[in-house]
Amino acid sequence: MSLPAPLTGVVPPLCTPLTPAGEVDTRSLTVLVERLIGAGVSALFALGSSGEAAYMGDRRRRTVLQAVIEAADGRVPVLAGVIDMTTERVLDHARTAAELGADGIVATAPFYTRTHPVEIADHFRRLRDGAGLPLFAYDIPIAVHSKLTPAIVLPLAADGTLAGVKDSSGDDGALRRLLVEVRRRGLAGSFSVLTGSELAVDGALLAGAHGVVPGLANVDPAGFVRLYDHARAGRWEHAAAEQDRLAALFALTGAGDPALMGGSSSGLGGFKAALHLLGVIDCPATAAPQVPLGDAAVKTVRQVLVDGGLLP
């Protein structure tokens, strides 16, 4: 289906359910897609950070994307993460996404080697030309060690290279300044600024963000849709109340013991444990070498779901 410009609303970065053996569980993935669409999300983002794309080879990535596109069946647009280290590798993923019928692609700056802003801009232009799909830049400096500054992003927005940016930088001041410049340059009607935050969505929408790409929307998509709808209608007190509830729910990502596992294991494990407890996915396994949540952590996740009104 055609991708709206600008893209707005709630765009969950899908978790990728796995079997105990580490294969993609396409049945559970289809159930998850149906749940999110039923909650009223605007689009789906497959193979992002919440989808554990960094832990998957090409075969599993293809399986995930094909399953999501088939399950969505044209009801909402599907964005495909094409994240990899170099332009050549990213172009390979982008061409696969186009072949499978994705509606847009999402890419970071190149990583592993240090790249100059001129090289980053060239990277995005090659991706847009090579894939022939709307391209969203993924600003996640904690992972790729390059910040997508307004000096990089705005010229690419103006010349049509980028359809939007997903801001997962955690820098609310930088996001606000970008939004100001997008409006000042007359780009707000064609270029989407999407926040990747779970905790400050109401503030980002008040500042003019077009939408939100929250991993926690896998667990509570209806909550984020309500938050977005309240914000768009100017019901800011209701939006703030929903945001407060979701901020408390986000505690499930910290259930893992930091002495035993890293933040990725805890966060993604928390999402998947919640989806398993809610009966959405069959198995809460995360991709190797992430450490699985133990019984005590899963008990914590359950209590957070109860406190958040998602479990009795």
Rank of each mutant, 00 (worst) to 15 (best):
V301Q: 12
P17E: 01
R183F: 07
A107Y: 09
P110E: 08
A72G: 09
C283R: 00
H210D: 15
A273G: 14
T108A: 09
G203S: 08
G196F: 03
A209L: 03
G262R: 05
K147P: 06
P12R: 02
A273I: 07
A241D: 08
G223K: 01
Y138W: 10
L47W: 04
D172F: 14
G132P: 02
S264Q: 07
A151R: 11
Y112A: 15
G38C: 06
A143R: 12
G38Y: 01
D25N: 13
L227C: 15
G256E: 04
G132I: 02
V180G: 00
R61A: 06
V212M: 09
G208R: 06
E88V: 14
R114L: 12
G186W: 11
A174V: 07
V118M: 01
R62S: 15
R176Y: 10
T96V: 07
P17W: 02
L249P: 11
G262D: 15
P110R: 14
T16M: 04
G189S: 09
T8H: 11
A241E: 12
Y138M: 06
A163M: 12
A143W: 11
R114V: 01
A200G: 04
V144E: 13
V225G: 03
F111I: 08
E99K: 10
G38D: 01
A5W: 05
G173D: 15
T96E: 13
V291K: 12
R245T: 07
A98G: 06
I152D: 13
L3N: 14
H210I: 09
D171E: 14
T115P: 11
L36V: 01
R89Y: 06
G279D: 10
I69R: 06
L127G: 03
A5E: 15
L29C: 14
F250I: 00
E242F: 06
